[in-house]
Amino acid sequence: MSEKKKQLIISISREYGAGGHLIAQILAEKLGLELVDADSIARYFADNHNFNYDEVMKYSGKPFNRIIHRTIQGHTSTLEENLSRMQFDYLREKAANGDSFVIVGRCSETVLEDYDCMIAFFILADEEDKVKRVMEREGLNEYDARHTARAGTWNHKSYHNYYCKGKWGDSRLYDVCINSSRFGPEKTADILENYINEYLNS
């Protein structure tokens, strides 16, 4: 009889271009866990809740204009907020089902804070490394990549800080904050895997 695996949730928050998604992918693969990211969530919503995949991708995980937004008795006019809250519910439901997974973003370190089995990492990187990664990944010139990296990081921050009391990037929200520029994403993933294994063996 195989022993039932301990539930494990890895939350990865990241600066734009810091390699957080790549680290999440490596960890998911090494630990044999499901990777939950914008794409997989959009697919889930499209397959199970009538949503259009492209629309979910367009409005998910994004901040929105607070001026053209209204909330009435818990209902909101903003598609970004409606989708975000549904995604938070989806994560809570998944965690409550006992699922183990690696989740990228979605304010997961706060949404799933009640789960002791959740380990939260925050991945940052040096500016030049972020720009280089964005240039390679998105085929942009240096100027555009720098702008995209800054705007992307600002988006992550605004999105998080609208829904959560704790501030994005505040070390107190995470188990480990790590600069991926020091050793590169692969080695950073190894370090984080060791941390996770220590937790699992404790």
Partner: peptide, 25 residues
């Protein structure tokens, strides 16, 4: 006129969104 003009607009848009139908501006 707009999604935020009246309470009913907000509620209608929210109900549609929760059921997979996104009503953009």
């Amino acid at each position: 006129a707009t999604p935020i003009g009246a309470s009913a607009n907000v509620v209608g848009i929210s109900i549609a969104a929760k059921n997979g139908h996104l009503i953009s501006w």
